[in-house]
């Protein structure tokens, strides 16, 4: 398990991440903050998430494999321990809550569908994704 992501690392990438998010969602940069939820606050839809990830890859010259967040969150749990027919197990939910530590705890609902996980993402989630990809590229 790699070292925890520091506030400084997040803040270093935030301005460019916020800009990419604002552009993809046609928002004024002032409407975007570190805590903005992509779906609920900024009215993203699924194709916008692809668009944001694409813009971040271009902006930071990094690779962000699709589905990486779920895979990382699962870590050393087996698939069966993590989910059951696309529904998160209690252990899976706990792992996800740890991994998405920037998301307020009450946003995680028991028996959440894996397909709904992106609705949890905030701008900070995107920042952390970028930091991890940059670390991986530097490694």
């Amino acid at each position: 398990m790699s070292a925890a992501i520091t506030r400084a690392e997040v803040e270093a990438v935030y301005p460019r991440v916020a800009n990419a998010v604002a552009q993809a969602l046609a928002r004024d940069p002032a409407e975007v903050s570190l805590n903005s939820r992509l779906f609920a606050d900024l009215e993203a839809e699924s194709i916008d998430l692809l668009d944001i990830v694409f813009r971040l890859e271009r902006e930071f010259k990094i690779q962000i494999p699709r589905g990486r967040i779920i895979e990382d969150a699962r870590g050393d749990l087996s698939e069966a321990e993590f989910e059951n027919n696309g529904v998160l197990t209690a252990a899976g939910l706990a792992r996800l809550r740890d991994y998405l530590s920037e998301v307020p705890a009450d946003n995680f609902r028991p028996r959440m569908n894996i397909a709904d996980v992106p609705t949890l993402f905030t701008v900070e989630t995107m920042c952390k994704m970028v930091v991890r990809a940059m670390r991986a590229a530097g490694a």
Partner: peptide, 10 residues
């Protein structure tokens, strides 16, 4: 391809 010239999904 990783690092390849992906076109804009939009």
């Amino acid at each position: 391809k990783p690092g390849g010239p992906a076109p804009d999904p939009v």
